[in-house]
Design a binder for these strands. Structure first.
Lengths: 346, 346
DNA sequence: ACGGTTTGTCGAAACGCTTCGACGTTCTCG
DNA sequence: CGAGAACGTCGAAGCGTTTCGACAAACCGT
């Protein structure tokens, strides 16, 4: 494997000249540059990443800490990892995966101290996330996907749950819906302070109340079976329900199943809107679910930019951003049925 | 950030002694080791990964080249990446992601020459995969998930499509099915020599023919819409069809939709078996789809072991392995309906 | 024509580790 | 009891880059 000194010898220049020709940090005479480049080409030279990192004290590697990709449909996480990897590639960085649970802050810090990565990306951030404290104490550059409780100036990108929920509710209200239920993630995630669950719940309660409607929200394990049970319970609690917003992909399949088993039509009897889903998941159901899909790819890109802007002072800083989910029309939403609101018929 | 010489100074030994204490490559007196360890602890020392790699000429990083994670439900790829990352972690290796298309062999080689990774893992291997040639020419250790056409001694792990298909067909035949159709991946993937598509098709044709049944297989784009159309076409071609094997998760949702729209019951009229699915995908449908799910996690682990055994001569070599899919019972399979076989009824 | 920049190149010192050879000590066993 | 092996430690030479300071040569304005 050719080294930089092989190139230098073959081009008849010193090692440092080759280095400057590569980095452009100092001017090189055009013909010298030519000679160096052709030497590099004919030797198939690629600079040794480790030596480069050691000397420059920058590894050009960023780490993505993720708790679990699998665990369900997982399209959101997958899309996200994909876009992070690609964005990193574009910026000429490598992406390493650090599979850690959110409570393994110590392990994360130790790995970070090995300086394999110049910075880390955190996903599935909780409202009180010890990893943030540890990383800050260790002065490790980071960016979060999600936000801690105190929405300060910590570098982050996140889904705009408030605006997403507002769009969702406004859309349904515009179609005459007044009794709109919400199916959230599980109670455990809620009490663990999992950001999306907590923020969406708060937004839902606030927006419903502000409109003078009665909030009716439920936590629900991420599974079709639980989704089905929760739907049954919701219908028992409010038989006049006309719409359900779900933020739980797997549970949504259970919603469909329960409604089907009761011969309730979608959207004739009940409208269903899936929010924060992975793109395309709506087409898996019949009738196709109307969704507001998670801007995973965009978040991935932004998160990388946000982190890199801290690593490289030359980059323009990337402000914290909140991205709303994108409406993907399906066939699961219609006007609220009116037989309940107007009991007497002509 | 503490370095090894800080530790050495603080413990009153030489740098090399600290290094040997860490690696265990040479014996160290217990009390010396104690002193070194407590020095490391109090300094919060973590060895610099770059320096270590440069000196030892091994980065303890492996690369996973993947074409695209997302693509729909994507649980399989996600599960796979997950298990690869975890296995690497267990073996004290880092995993980097190289998002490259299968035709970017040159880029892969150049990255490999930078020696950031000690070896690479390839997924979505095609029958004739130029990446393999390039990697072999560059003497880069690798392991494939999937196999090239010439099933030689190249390091690989793969799904055992033949045995999976045999199990699938045998299961259905045991329930009286004779007219069993097969819905494969898309025609483009087929002609691109995508291993799973080609091998499953070959297995299906061979096994059906060997039993004296008529093969009826179709390629199908990965989407519910196409799945639905293909199902309609299959039913038109053979109205006496009693079972469908699908190896196309998204298309399977279309199969369900088409059968439902014709008021054909599952499994009363038609049994449906999804093979090579991501685990859990069966529960998304109603009635729950019986599946043979892809051993993604196991393949991921084996692939890592297979690669590491080449990197580390001390490891016992891992032979190439073929893992069959795992039957996950659902409710979409039943006995073949008999009205067609026995036209006259009492 | 003369100081002062800018340009283009070089040599050498890091970067933080691993690993080799050397060497004094302590065991082992014939 | 003495030769050879095993033990425990050290110093130094890398590993393949980047980057700093130096310096000759060409260029500049006056």
């Amino acid at each position: 494997m050719a080294t930089i000194s092989d190139v230098a010898r073959s081009a008849g220049v010193s090692v440092s000249t080759v280095s400057y020709a590569i980095s452009g940090a100092r001017p090189i005479r055009p013909e010298t540059r030519e000679r160096i480049q052709s030497a590099m080409r004919s030797l198939g030279f690629q600079p040794n990443a480790m030596a480069r990192s050691l000397a420059s004290r920058r590894s050009r590697v960023i780490a993505l800490i993720y708790p679990q990709i699998g665990g369900g449909i997982g399209g959101t996480a997958g899309e996200f990892v994909q876009s992070v990897a690609e964005r990193a590639r574009e910026a000429d960085y490598q992406l390493v995966l650090w599979p850690f649970r959110t409570d393994q802050a110590r392990e994360i810090r130790n790995l970070a101290r090995q300086r394999m990565a110049d910075g880390v990306l955190l996903m599935e951030v909780c409202l009180d996330d010890e990893r943030i404290d540890v990383l800050e104490a260790a002065k490790v550059p980071y960016a979060m996907i999600g936000r801690t409780r105190d929405v300060t100036e910590r570098p982050s990108v996140d889904i705009d749950f408030a605006s997403t929920m507002e769009t969702a509710i406004a859309h349904l209200v515009g179609l005459g819906h007044r009794r709109i239920a919400f199916i959230n993630h599980s109670g455990e995630q809620m009490s663990a302070g999992y950001g999306p669950a907590v923020r969406a719940a708060a937004a839902y309660d606030g927006l419903m109340t502000a409109r003078g409607f009665v909030p009716l929200s439920r936590t629900c394990d991420d599974s079709p079976v639980t989704g089905r049970a929760v739907t049954a319970e919701l219908l028992a609690t409010d038989p006049e329900l006309t719409a359900i917003i779900t933020m739980n992909e797997l549970a949504t399949f259970g919603v469909y199943a329960e409604l089907a088993s009761r011969n309730l039509s979608i959207p004739g009897d009940v409208s269903v809107l899936g929010i924060v889903t992975s793109p395309g998941v709506g087409t898996l159901s019949y009738p196709p679910l109307t969704t507001m899909h998670s801007p995973g790819a965009e978040l991935g890109r932004l998160a990388v930019d946000c982190l890199l802007s801290q690593l490289d002072p030359a980059r323009t800083p990337v402000p914290n951003q909140l991205i709303p989910c994108v409406l993907e029309p399906g066939m699961s939403i219609g006007p609220a049925r009116t037989d309940l609101d107007v009991p007497q018929r002509p």
